[in-house]
Simulated assay, not measured.
Amino acid sequence: MNLSGAINYEAIIWLSFGGPNDPSEVMPFLENVTSGRNVPRQRLEKVADQYMLFGGKSPINEQNLELIEKLRLELSSRSITLPIYFANRNWSPYIGEVVKELQSDGVRSALAFVTSAYGSYSGCRQYREDIQRAVDEYAPGLYVHKIRHYFSHPGFVGTLVEATRALVEDLTSLGDRKIAVACSAHSIPLKMSVSSKYLSQLESVKEAIRDSIKDGGFSDVPVDLVFQSRSGPPTEPWLEPDIGDKLTEYVESGIDTVVVVPIGFVSDHMEVIYDLDVLAAQIAKDVGISLFRVPTASKDDAFVSMVADLVQEQIDPSFHAANYPGMEIPTEECHVGCCLEFS
């Protein structure tokens, strides 16, 4: 798999995590995701019950398909006519099926856009490994380049910054509130985090939000990085603080209103609509906090424009995608030891 890019790309792969489309797929999907990890059946059944609260399906596939259609229109407006193929890592259409289809269609080189903005094993390297494995098995000779991280593109971080500041302004105008902002991302094991820039990239997004809040005249509003959705054994240290613990801490410091910003997620899938909108919301209610959530970045049209930018910079040497002021510009190259599963 190529990591340095090329010019003559013939297709785009929109690659995501995957999710069940109906109740009959929920348990097979969960079994597939947790394969080889010795997760107790009881735990899988508990997670399956969470899906049933939303009709036994994940919204992620429909969200991806809607974004793909918007991307087609945006690329067309730029005279870019590359076909877009939808693929998943953990459910149909599997990446293996899709690279086989690409080869059958005569595609020799493709760009892969992954619905994860940051570097980490599960958010970057594992996708690259799965792409390479699929190419080796189903489409030898197919040339695939994974598009770089995009946490610092204005179409991602800028939408979160603007939406957060606007919500804080609105809440402040409603009366005397003690507000805090909690920037939430998926927790990962500490030993996994040290081999990637995941934590520093999240911190940079949080800092951009904090600076915007401060510039808006709300310097007394704390902005914190919190984590959610941990799934490992309790004996293994993961990134903290957990959002539930932080909500309790906020109460103890006199905070009565919390704005949650899902900076670690691209769209409103299960980790957002259940872990935040249900679990975190219930904890907030229990401790007496008013909880408000900022939309995920893909809710803004700037997100699709960003994806088009990332595609265009790969096929047009004279074009360079924008970067949020003061933030790191992600590199195209991945060094050998980056984003390892275990350090």
Rank of each mutant, 00 (worst) to 15 (best):
A180M: 08
L44P: 07
S76F: 01
S109L: 09
V258D: 00
D256N: 15
G36Y: 01
Y51G: 07
H153K: 11
T159S: 11
I147Q: 01
G264R: 10
S24Q: 05
P325E: 02
S35P: 00
D245M: 07
V307D: 01
V304M: 09
V221S: 02
A117W: 09
H269Q: 03
G5D: 10
R165W: 09
T164I: 11
Y150A: 09
G56R: 01
A280K: 02
K206S: 12
M306S: 01
T296K: 00
E252S: 14
S290V: 11
G175I: 06
Y150Q: 04
Y198K: 02
Y324W: 15
L247T: 11
S120M: 03
T248F: 06
Q282V: 01
P140M: 14
R177A: 13
R72G: 01
G264H: 08
G288D: 12
I263E: 06
S16R: 01
P154S: 01
R128E: 13
E97S: 13
I68E: 11
A48K: 05
S290G: 11
P189D: 03
F29S: 04
I84N: 02
L53I: 06
T159Y: 04
E97W: 09
T172K: 13
V278L: 08
A139I: 07
L171H: 13
F319A: 07
E101R: 15
L171R: 12
C339T: 04
V221C: 06
N21Q: 14
L276M: 08
Q126E: 15
A180D: 04
P23S: 01
T172C: 10
H186A: 06
I289H: 03
E332Q: 14
I188S: 00
S343F: 07
Y118A: 12
K178W: 04
T296G: 10
R148I: 13
M327V: 10
F156C: 05
A11M: 03
S290I: 04
S253R: 15
